[in-house]
Design a protein around this nucleic acid. Structure first.
Length: 585
DNA sequence: GCCGTTTTCGGCCCGACTGTTTTCAGTCG
């Protein structure tokens, strides 16, 4: 069993223990262990074999034993027994806002409620309201929560949430009462999906700001409208929270509500180690009663400086080593959007794109790019009007003619998104593929293979002499479809060994390969290309979402192929295709 | 369940809000 499967089980154990009313710190230890495992650099098999698992901070005797058992046997007796002792319906009740382990347990014990259906009935007939510690409002809230669960339970793509957030933030900044305003939360950290929007405002006069906020266009429901906090829900189901704090607290609050939780915990522990207490209200000596003696800061940078840290950008605040790096002054110089000088992997009307070769070139030129590249589908993607060898070569001629015409200053590279067939071979003739500037190899068919098969299949495609880049590594569609199982470490190693780029597919629904893998992969030497996978000219903008992934993955411009100049890209492509005269020009 | 220059037991980040209560428990971020 691999790292991420085991991490899933540790998280499940934590949830089950929560329902059982276990010590919260024990629960956290399992969650912490799961996270550690997910971000573990080293090979799990080696650590187990060498008995070095115990050396990982956060793994004690109990976790080492459980991880080892799972890794070696694929199952865990402790987990099976635990699972059998908890009714599954109770776990799903945790998803209802306002319900935690204690209440669920009480309702189960007193009323025998073991499913959301039963819970709904018990709320409707007054049984829940009659319970000690419960009441009418609690029952009503649960009913609303059950109703909303399906409609609004979904997270939202960062891209979509950002579109909603932009005008709100702009509007807040325009209000005369507002001194400082920012978005916060996972939106600011640029996670690929976000649960809700958070806004923080520094002001001495909260009321008009709150009133403006709840009166926004598209607000369907106001769920809170208080002095320091208001919450609204938009038609799309997206929820937004606004907090207004006195200006001197603004940067503390901004940092606090930007998170992540793990990052905040680590920051507070760091403050404590210096005799200070950190919260959204300020940073004060630990034995002071109130925050009147808090440090005064005029930026987030100063907050980090107070704790002897280099400034940590929001994207990096995931509690995965950023504080240690900031302490040593070893944070990376993150990729900037303006460093991108062109893009690969884009579709035209030749396959399933909406814009012609010329329209796309015009748009790329308008973006100020030095180059862009086509990568229409190959014939195995029949539903997408994929190109066969003949049509590929025909398109190549068109592209050469367009470049020769001098009509645009932006150079067009001729590529293909070639399907990786079930056995790992490519969908087009090698001679065809070698005639092109570059090849993006991607999986679109036979996606239900085992992890082992899929890994071998991808590696075989990577080893093909014509392959330049690997397309969307796992094929996931965020919020909709899990990616296929694949051993990422092995694929990354193969890509490095064969001088193949692994793309960051910047389509906001894909963002694949995931940001969590990039730091380690780049350290090993993997290059990426941020590819918009554009199916129309406006999709070129997706490249920004890809830059977010790169930044969250600790990448610098040096790790990103499409920060190279036109001449450098031509040279790199020519290395794989030495026989082609035209590439030397 | 983890951890340790205050170390093998007793801590573990901190505060607001809500709804239920007459002083607090549960939940949330």
């Amino acid at each position: 069993m691999n790292k991420s499967d085991i991490a899933d089980i540790l998280n499940e154990i934590a949830t089950l223990l929560e329902i059982k009313g276990e010590n919260p710190f024990k629960i956290r230890a399992y969650q912490n262990g799961a996270r550690k495992l997910e971000t573990l650099d080293a090979d799990l098999g080696e650590l187990v074999a060498e008995g070095k698992l115990k050396e990982v901070a956060g793994f004690g005797d109990a976790l080492v034993q459980k991880i080892t058992e799972l890794h070696e046997t694929g199952s865990l007796e402790f987990f099976e027994k635990l699972k059998a002792s908890v009714e599954p319906g109770l776990v799903s009740m945790l998803e209802i806002p306002g319900l935690g382990a204690k209440k669920i347990k009480a309702m189960h014990k007193e009323l025998g409620i073991a499913s959301i259906e039963e819970l709904k009935t018990a709320c409707e007939n007054g049984e829940v309201a009659a319970l000690k510690g419960f009441g009418k409002k609690t029952a009503e809230k649960i009913l609303v929560g059950i109703e909303n669960r399906e409609a609004y339970g979904m997270r939202h793509l960062w891209w979509d949430a950002n579109e909603v957030a932009k005008p709100i933030l702009e509007g807040l900044k325009q209000l005369p009462e507002v001194e400082e305003a920012s978005h916060a939360g996972s939106l600011r950290r640029k996670r690929d999906t976000v649960g809700d929007l958070d806004f923080i405002v520094g002001s001495r006069d909260a009321k008009p700001i709150m009133d403006w906020f709840v009166g926004q266009e598209g607000v369907k429901e106001v769920t809170a409208h208080g002095e320091t906090k208001s919450s609204v829900r938009f038609d799309s189901g997206l929820q937004a929270d606004l907090r207004v704090v006195p200006p001197e607290q603004f940067y503390f609050a901004l940092h606090h509500f930007t998170g992540s939780k793990d990052h905040n915990v680590a920051m507070r522990q760091r403050a404590l180690a210096r005799g200070m207490s950190l919260s959204e209200w300020g940073l004060k000596p630990v034995d002071d009663e109130d925050f009147s003696n808090s440090k005064v800061i005029a930026s987030e940078e100063e907050l980090f400086r107070c704790l002897d840290l280099e400034y940590i950008l929001p994207e990096l605040r995931e509690g995965s080593g950023e504080i240690e790096a900031a302490e040593k002054g070893k944070l990376p110089e993150l990729l900037k959007p303006e460093a991108i000088r062109g893009v690969f992997h884009n579709h035209t009307t030749a396959s399933d794109g909406r814009c012609s070769l010329e329209e796309m070139t015009e748009a790329a030129q308008a973006k100020g790019w030095e180059y862009w590249g086509t990568a229409d589908h190959s014939k195995a993607s029949f539903q997408a009007n994929g190109l066969d060898d003949e049509r590929v070569l025909e398109q190549l001629k068109q592209i050469e003619a367009l470049n020769a015409s001098g009509k645009f200053s932006t150079h067009v590279f001729a590529g293909i998104e070639c399907d990786i067939l079930g056995d790992g071979s490519l969908d087009l003739e090698e001679s065809t593929l070698m005639a092109l500037d570059y090849v993006v190899a991607s999986v679109h068919i036979s996606m239900s293979q085992s992890e082992d098969e899929m890994t071998k299949r991808l590696i075989r495609a990577i080893e093909h002499p014509a392959t330049t880049m690997l397309g969307h590594l796992t094929g996931r569609i965020l919020l909709k479809r899990e990616g296929y199982k694949v051993d990422v470490a092995k694929v990354v190693d193969a890509a490095i060994a064969n001088d193949v780029i692994v793309e960051i597919n910047a389509n906001p629904r894909r963002l694949d390969m995931d940001w969590r893998f990039w730091r380690r992969a780049a350290e090993k030497g993997l290059m990426t290309s941020i590819n918009p996978d554009a199916h129309r000219a406006e999709h070129f903008d997706f490249v920004d979402a890809g830059v977010n992934v790169a930044r969250k993955g600790w990448l610098s411009a040096a790790n990103v192929f499409n920060t190279l100049s036109l001449a450098e890209v031509k040279e790199a492509f020519a290395k794989k295709r030495p026989a082609l005269e035209r590439l030397k020009s």
